[in-house]
């Protein structure tokens, strides 16, 4: 598992990367009440804002961590946004992206580095 400074977790399986937000991020956001996901088939570039998360407190977004194509989205968190608080690093993944370029993964943090990052 790798982590971004935007508090996403990234799980690589071949050329498909599953993306969600960390437990730390979910706690900081507070109760999530709305999630807007990209459509399957969307081509995205690294750092595009592709997900909107609204909590009781504020709106925030998730950036595409890599170039690629959205191949799957987790509709269950759209129907039940509270799942993002209940199981952010498990059932409440956001989307899967098939990437053409895994190179940026090298720059993302390991779990130990992320733990240090969030202090």
């Amino acid at each position: 598992m790798k982590y971004t400074e935007e508090h996403e977790w990234l799980l690589v399986e071949g050329d498909v990367v599953t993306v969600g937000i960390t437990a730390h991020a979910a706690e900081q956001l507070g109760d999530v009440v709305f999630v807007d996901l990209p459509e399957v088939g969307t081509t995205v570039s690294k750092d595009d804002e592709i997900v909107v998360i609204e909590s009781v407190k504020a709106a925030s977004d998730i950036l595409a961590p890599l170039d690629g194509e959205i191949v799957e989205i987790n509709e269950t968190i759209v129907d039940n946004p509270a799942m993002v608080n209940d199981d952010p690093e498990g059932e409440a993944w956001f989307f899967k992206i098939r990437t053409t370029d895994l190179k940026p993964m090298d720059d993302y943090m390991t779990e130990a580095e992320y733990k240090e990052f969030i202090g």
Partner: peptide, 10 residues
């Protein structure tokens, strides 16, 4: 205090 451990929703 903006919220306690219970959270805004609850």
């Amino acid at each position: 205090p903006v919220q306690y451990p219970l959270g805004v929703l609850k």
